[in-house]
Simulated scan of single mutants.
Amino acid sequence: MKVCIVAEGCYPYVVGGVSGWINSMIKSFPNIEFILLTIVANRSVRGKFVYELPENLTQVYELYLEDCEWEEGERERKVRKRFHLSKKERTELTNLVMNRKIEWGVIFDLFQRKGVSVDNLLMGPDFFQIVRECWPV
Rank of each mutant, 00 (worst) to 15 (best):
I5C: 05
V79I: 01
V50W: 07
N23Y: 00
S28W: 00
G17Y: 00
E103R: 00
V50P: 10
K88N: 14
E8F: 14
I32K: 00
G17A: 03
P136Q: 11
Q59W: 14
I39S: 03
F127Y: 02
D109M: 03
T58R: 05
E89D: 02
I26F: 01
C68A: 14
N31Y: 08
V3C: 11
H84N: 04
T58S: 07
E74R: 08
V50D: 14
K88A: 13
S19M: 02
V60P: 05
L37D: 10
V18A: 12
W135T: 08
R80Q: 13
L37V: 10
I32P: 02
K2S: 09
R80P: 12
Q129P: 06
G20P: 08
N31E: 01
T91N: 13
V79C: 04
V40R: 03
N99F: 13
F34N: 04
R90A: 01
D119E: 13
I107H: 07
P125H: 15
I32T: 01
N23E: 05
V15T: 12
F127G: 05
D109E: 11
E69V: 15
V116L: 01
N56G: 08
V118P: 11
L93K: 10
M1A: 14
R132G: 12
P12F: 03
F34Q: 02
R43Q: 06
R113I: 05
N95M: 07
L57P: 04
R100Q: 07
G17C: 02
L57M: 07
L53W: 00
V118M: 13
N120T: 06
F128N: 15
K81I: 07
G17T: 00
V18P: 12
L85A: 05
R46Y: 08
V18Y: 10
C10E: 10
F29D: 07
E69D: 13
K48A: 05
R80T: 13
V137E: 07
V60A: 06
E69I: 14
R82G: 15
T91M: 08
R100S: 07
K101P: 14
R43Y: 12
V14R: 01
I130C: 04
K2L: 11
V131E: 01
